[in-house]
Every structure is written in C-alpha cells, then in structure tokens.
C-alpha cells in the first residue's frame, strides 16, 4: 500500500473534531476574560486614578496573578480543556504557559528546573514579540531619519 493511499484510509478512520461547539466556547470564555480585563481596567482608572498606560499594566498584572492562582490550584487546565483558544489567546494563557512549566519542573530543582524551564513554552512568544518590536523600531527610526524628522 502506498503512503498516499494509507493517508486516505487514516483520514477516513480518524474522528473529526467538532467545529461549532469549540468555537462558541472559545468565544464566550475569551470574551469573558476580556470583559473581566475591562472591569479591572476601569477600576484602575476610576478608583486608583491611574493613567491609561498604568491602567493597562495594572490589568495585565491582575489577570496574570489570577491565571497563576488558577493554574496553581489546577483549575486553569480544566478551563483550557473546555475553552481551547478562549483561554490560550488572552494574556492569562500566556501566564499559564509560564506558570505551568515552573510548577512542573520544580522537582528538577529551583535553578535548572523552575529557573531554566519556566519559559519552555512561553519563551518563543518573547523571542518573536520583542524581536518584531525591535525590527519595527529600527525601521521606524530609519523612516524618521530619511523623512528628516529626527
């Protein structure tokens, strides 16, 4: 049997993922996390009279704290099973991907375990996010330079 023919057989025999339900779940959980973020932001702006930038930072920190807590209690992965991208894509999912390896690898010690493995999953996000921002910054600088605005 050829590989192509076998691939067809595998496709036919493998169950299809449900589509509609996961999308709805992702929508509602993702939306709810963002709404919670909006609430925290308003508290920061109105009650703590933070400026826009500080309120954004306050929101991130609060959500990251909540995510770390729920991950620690073993609840965030349950949410992840239910919501999929709904709990992966928000900043809480980023925090979960930092906290979960930290917890997982503490048995290998606090330096080479927790310390080294903490960014096992989330490291690439920083590598690509920060690199992209630096690239943008350099291009923007060149544009300003050529435009004579510097």
């Amino acid at each position: 049997m050829q590989q192509k023919e076998y691939e067809k057989l595998v496709k036919a025999k493998s169950p299809k993922s449900k589509v509609i339900l996961p999308l709805i779940k992702a929508f509602f959980v993702g939306g709810a996390i963002c709404t919670l973020g909006q609430g925290i932001r308003e508290i920061g702006e109105k009650c703590l009279s933070l400026d826009e930038q500080a309120a954004g930072c306050f929101t991130s920190v609060c959500l990251i704290f909540l995510s770390a807590l729920f991950t620690g209690l073993g609840l965030y992965d349950e949410l992840g099973k239910f919501a999929g991208a709904g709990s992966i894509v928000p900043i809480t999912g980023f925090a979960n991907s930092v906290v979960s390896p930290a917890m997982e690898f503490k048995r290998e010690g606090y330096v080479m375990g927790v310390g080294a493995k903490m960014f096992n999953v989330a490291g690439p996000v920083l590598v690509y996010g920060i690199s992209a921002s630096v690239l943008y910054g350099v291009i923007y600088w060149l544009v300003l330079l050529i435009g004579g605005k510097l």
Binding site: E78, M103, E104
Partner: peptide, 17 residues
C-alpha cells in the same frame, strides 16, 4: 505527559484521535 507533550497544568485541548 511531561516527556512527550506539555506540562500537566498547561491548558490545552486534545484532538479526538
């Protein structure tokens, strides 16, 4: 799980296969 996939507490979905 930790050797072949992800940390236990990472929230991810498994495909039906």
């Amino acid at each position: 799980e930790r050797q072949y996939r992800f940390p236990l507490e990472l929230g991810s979905q498994r495909p039906p296969s």
